[in-house]
Write a protein that binds this DNA or RNA. Sequence first.
DNA 1: CGACACATGTAACACGTTACATGATTTG
DNA 2: CAAATCATGTAACGTGTTACATGTGTCG
Lengths: 185, 185
Amino acid sequence: MSVKQALLALLEQGPKYGYQLRTEFEERTGSTWPLNIGQVYTTLSRLERDGLVVAGGDDGEGHVVYRTTEAGRAEVDAWFGSPVPRDQPPPRDELAIKLAIAISSPDVDVEYVIQQQRTATMRALQEHTRLKRSGRAARPEAPEDLAWSLVLDALVFEAEAEIRWLDHCEARLARLATTGGGTHS
Amino acid sequence: MSVKQALLALLEQGPKYGYQLRTEFEERTGSTWPLNIGQVYTTLSRLERDGLVVAGGDDGEGHVVYRTTEAGRAEVDAWFGSPVPRDQPPPRDELAIKLAIAISSPDVDVEYVIQQQRTATMRALQEHTRLKRSGRAARPEAPEDLAWSLVLDALVFEAEAEIRWLDHCEARLARLATTGGGTHS
DNA sequence: CGACACATGTAACACGTTACATGATTTG
DNA sequence: CAAATCATGTAACGTGTTACATGTGTCG
């Protein structure tokens, strides 16, 4: 649900062809989220079918160039003008679901699950900070570098929150084990 | 990619039928993520097709009862035994993508986008804390209540991290505007 | 020449959502 | 009786992934 709008937003800054869209998408997010070229073309077909973009208009090099329509422009404005919905059913959080089910399952060593996850998340966190230190994002001058830097920060913030939550879960479970709690189920 | 494993894990605690699986899933996650009943049946069909569950064995009330196979049990063990992958391409973050593209787009008021999002996320955060105060999660005694409590905590931690990130973005952009930066593009 | 990047697609599949169809049982 | 809940499914669609097919241009 985000590739569609992202491609549309990129197209609004000037007509582009498919391969170019992938390149620009990856540049602006610092190659954090690789975008399969196949998906670019299928998404463009659907956008065209829905009247949000039109193909046509040579760029003098024989590329299949797309540009936004009025409806497409409206869609982009709506995207930027409204927040990503964070109320109502939030997107499913696999980790939270996993722990929730693990807790009420005998035969599952919840402590171990938590420790495994923390190790993995900390490794990811270290990789993100390493990238920040070493990359263009270290001294962002161009807007694209700033964008990359901020994307990396988002990943860092998310990872830190996840680790804090895991610690929190561990503490709650430990307290439950020592005080009344006892065995579950 | 999480409903499949969740249903499988629930089935490993005893044979169940479709409707029952939805109820249990929602109970254990405190109705945070409603699960469409249609998806339960299609997922069960696919699990059966893949040899992870088998249908059959009456429960004495004419329900279509499923139970895990050996392969299904292995799948569940693998799920609990390995972390949710947080390295390599992390799942696409719509908000991060949106801001990254917005930053390198003239004609987009990034400040406004950030403020809109912060308002929405703070509203969601308040709703989560309200639920925590008022619900069963306030004094978790049963394991399911603890699970719900922890799920709510996860949502709170995520929302807080998002707000911190938005503040961070705003600060970086403000600094860029006052110091050298100037207009982009 | 051979490998690699550029460039455009198609097909098959996985997962998820919504809406529809159908019927039994329970409860006000 | 009417409405709600329990219960099982199917169909159509949206989005995303992987793999395959095909061809051009460039560079060592």
